[in-house]
Amino acid sequence: MIPEQVALTELERDALTEIVNIGVSRAASSLRKMIGEQVLLSVPSIEVVSHRRAARLISEREVAELIAVRQDFRGPFSGRALLIFPETNSLELVRAVTGGELSAEEVVEMEHEALAETGNVILNSCLATMANMLKRSLTMTIPEVLRGNGATLFEVDESGAEEGLVLFLYIDFAVRMRDIRGYIAMLMDIPSLATLKELLDEFIASVVGDDA
């Protein structure tokens, strides 16, 4: 079912998990600095799934409408990174990052822009760290704020055709003191996966050396 060239070995999967971990740790650290509260992270989940299933995995997680900050990246491997949380969490997050210095009206007024900036900081630090670990550089687009369900966020064409496989990666995060939760998700298409696999092998070789 999964083409040979993108099936990750156990070690490659370990390596990818670790690299994502570093990126996400960095992102969590950024978020912590922005809101001054402890941020809890889960172990990253990595799956190779169809585009459609990725969208459904996100949809299934939430009853409420979602809000997401999306940033596409391009380079040796390309894809899309999303910071997703229930829409009901949105204002609380904005309040948290603006540090209580804004009035309620200002919070509402700044919501969109504040979300974009928060997503920018989190996704950038995550992606940049991963790029550094793999010793490659990535170009990142300006963050976009989206609202909708899983399908709209992943731009899944409901009428079909979107059956291509993607690498789907997600990490839960929660800020308990603020009752904020969400996740970081990443999608990569197949040609990118093949390149990523090579880069992971390079990384493993450099780290593991003779033990591999």
Binding site: N124, L127, A128, S137
Partner: peptide
């Protein structure tokens, strides 16, 4: 100033 902390940047 940027969150894009890539070595290249």
């Amino acid at each position: 100033i940027t969150a894009n902390i890539q070595d290249e940047i």
